[in-house]
Computed example of a mutant assay.
Amino acid sequence: MLPAILFDLDGTLIDSLELILGSARHAFVGFSGRVPTDEEWRADIGRPLLTVLREYARDDAEADQLLQRFRAYQLEHHDRLIRPYEGIVETVKWLADAGHRMALVTSKADWLAEKALLHVGLDRLIPTVVGCDSCVRHKPHPEPVERALALLGVPAANALFVGDSPHDVESGRAAGVRTIGVTWGAFSREEMERAGADLVIDQVEELRRVVARFPTPTG
């Protein structure tokens, strides 16, 4: 059986870094507490948004205000500032045509992840979405990956998780799936290797080849 493939969204399938950083900057304009730098915010990409905002806010009301400001900018500029990485749509279509079952595993809200997939033309190729609304615990916990495996009906031994952040790698490893780190997103090869990725790739075009290299379990 061909391995199922789980994909992260931001930094893996879509280039949304400018949107993410712009939304964060907008959220913290006029904020009287500690304001994250771009580098600090980049390091938290892959974690649920509200979880990160609560680490800067002094109470839940302040976190909600930051969330509303973040969302306002994000939704206003969403379609203009996200795009699929070059070659991603063609690669995902090739994998689907070859018979690989696929799911999205993201810390983004389910509805927003679905909006992004629709905008870049991946919604029909990856119809199964596990976002932060689908789970109680989030990356780097294994629950999102385990949820995706259950929805696809495949064992961990017959699945790969492709992602650009250490949170993806740690979540996949904890769930028992093999992990492919990518370096075209927000994190470096060194960061992905330190997280324990089974393989790290630098080009979208490598995905077809490396997926074929992972052996199908027997027995």
Rank of each mutant, 00 (worst) to 15 (best):
G176Y: 08
A57Y: 02
V200K: 05
L207K: 07
G172N: 11
H141F: 09
R47S: 04
L2N: 13
D59F: 07
C132L: 02
R124A: 13
L67H: 12
R137E: 12
K139E: 07
E76R: 14
L117E: 11
R69T: 05
R42I: 10
A57L: 02
P3A: 01
G219T: 15
R208K: 13
A212T: 08
A197Q: 11
E190Q: 14
R124K: 15
M1K: 11
E193D: 09
L81D: 01
R80L: 05
D8Q: 08
L149W: 06
G153N: 08
E114C: 01
K139F: 04
V154Q: 11
W184Y: 11
P215T: 08
R58M: 04
A4K: 13
T51V: 15
E190V: 07
K108M: 03
R209S: 12
G181M: 05
P84I: 00
A109G: 05
L199Q: 14
D164F: 05
V120P: 13
A212H: 14
V169D: 09
W184D: 02
S32Q: 15
V120E: 01
V211A: 00
P140N: 08
A174Y: 04
D110C: 07
M192G: 06
L17A: 11
A212E: 15
D97K: 13
S23D: 06
R124D: 14
D15Q: 10
A98R: 14
W111R: 14
A159H: 03
I14T: 10
P48R: 09
A109Y: 12
L13C: 12
E170G: 00
V204K: 08
D15V: 03
V210R: 02
P215V: 09
R25K: 13
L151S: 02
V92Y: 10
V35L: 07
D64Q: 15
S32R: 13
V130K: 06
L118T: 15
R178E: 11
V204T: 04
P36Q: 03
E206V: 03
R34S: 11
A63P: 14
C135D: 05
A27L: 08
L152E: 08
T179A: 04
A116D: 15
P36Y: 04
T128L: 12
G163Y: 02
